[in-house]
Simulated assay, not measured.
Amino acid sequence: MVRTHGLTKRFGHVTAVDSVDLDVREADVYGFLGANGSGKTTTVRMLLGLVLATSGQIEVLGSSMPAAGREVLPQVGALVEGPAAYPHLSGRANLALIDATGPGGDRRSRRRRIGEALDRVGLASIDDRAVRAYSLGMRQRLGLAAALLRRPRLLVLDEPTNGLDPQGINEIRTLLLELNREGTTVFLSSHLLGEIEQMCTRVGVLDGGRLVLQDQLSALRGPTGRTEVHTPDVDLARSLLDGTVEEHGDGRLLVRVPDVAELNARLVAQGVRVTLLAPEHRSLEEVVLEATTSGTDRFGREAGTP
């Protein structure tokens, strides 16, 4: 659905995006993760033909961009750098203008499609208030409705939950997963680790303009080869497993052993109360911390996420 090769953008002497090779596959929910200022939005703008690349190739829906923009863009819904709208007009009027002036708008089905898009983003009861009276969250929902007007094959979203409360974030997450199940490929750019980890099937991590990771989320969070043991008897377990315990604390041990069944039998036989025995998996935060120079201190977490 989206492929780039050596995609680079320089602004004078500053390299904002440096030789990025994206691989977004059909039916993906692709999380494009990076700290603020890492080059995510510049990359997204190049994919959509809003900014010209300094060098490299871009392919969207099997066609070269920006050359094939007239054929490609009617099949792409996008929300980049916050929703644009005429503040003195209502949300419905703004959507009607977007549909009328954009490529591929169908006048005969416009009213129905606007109603369906507003309903999907939770603005079905929208009145004739001017957009200037909308909250930031309402504006974000309106921008997402605009991206959905033509039932796109590919949805490209840059920080789509910006300004939403926890309930709104959950509603948008549910909507995007529904759209994906219905056949829409979702490309989601975000600096929120929790948002990417809960939604995406495939992840790319941008750090200082370079793509430092790109893989299935399940592979990135795969087993580490260690076994996680939860027990209130940490000291006793440590004495029995001397030499195999690599980390311990707070009722938890991380152990490297060849036979997990034998480990469990040995602990139970010696009276150790085992409440959990499972393969250790890394969190996305741990993966990102290891791969990036900025660490995770510049990556945010959505509202309500510890």
Rank of each mutant, 00 (worst) to 15 (best):
V76C: 03
L95E: 03
G77C: 10
E81F: 05
E81N: 11
P103V: 05
G91E: 08
T101I: 14
P83M: 10
A84H: 06
E71A: 15
G69R: 15
D99P: 00
A96P: 01
G102K: 10
R70F: 05
L89Q: 06
G69C: 05
L97P: 01
L95D: 02
L89F: 11
A85V: 10
G102I: 01
G105Y: 03
H88N: 12
G102E: 07
V80Q: 08
G105A: 11
E71S: 15
L79P: 09
Y86Q: 13
L89T: 04
A100L: 12
G69V: 02
A96W: 04
Q75K: 13
L95T: 03
P74Q: 06
L97W: 02
L95F: 07
P83D: 08
G102C: 05
V80G: 05
G77I: 05
V76A: 02
G69Y: 02
A85L: 11
A96Y: 10
P74M: 01
P74T: 05
P74D: 05
A93E: 15
R92K: 14
Q75H: 13
N94A: 07
E71K: 13
S90F: 08
Y86T: 11
L97C: 00
I98M: 08
P103M: 08
N94T: 11
Q75D: 08
G91Y: 04
P74G: 09
G77S: 13
A96T: 10
Q75N: 10
G105V: 06
P103F: 12
S90T: 15
V80E: 06
P87F: 12
A100E: 12
E81G: 08
D99M: 11
P103Q: 12
R92V: 14
N94Y: 10
N94P: 11
T101G: 09
V72K: 06
L73H: 01
V76W: 02
P83Y: 07
L97M: 12
A100I: 03
E71R: 15
G102Y: 01
L73F: 01
L97Q: 06
G105I: 08
G104T: 00
G82D: 11
G102M: 03
A85M: 11
N94F: 06
E81D: 14
E71M: 08
V80I: 15
A85G: 04
A93R: 15
R92I: 07
G102P: 04
P74N: 07
A78Q: 07
R92T: 14
T101Y: 14
V76E: 02
L73A: 00
I98W: 06
L97Y: 11
V72H: 05
N94G: 06
R70N: 09
R70V: 15
G77D: 10
N94M: 09
A100Q: 12
R92N: 02
G105T: 09
P74H: 02
A96M: 10
L73K: 07
V80L: 08
G69N: 10
V72C: 07
H88S: 13
A78T: 14
T101C: 12
E81R: 09
P87W: 10
V76K: 02
R70C: 06
G91Q: 06
A78F: 12
T101F: 14
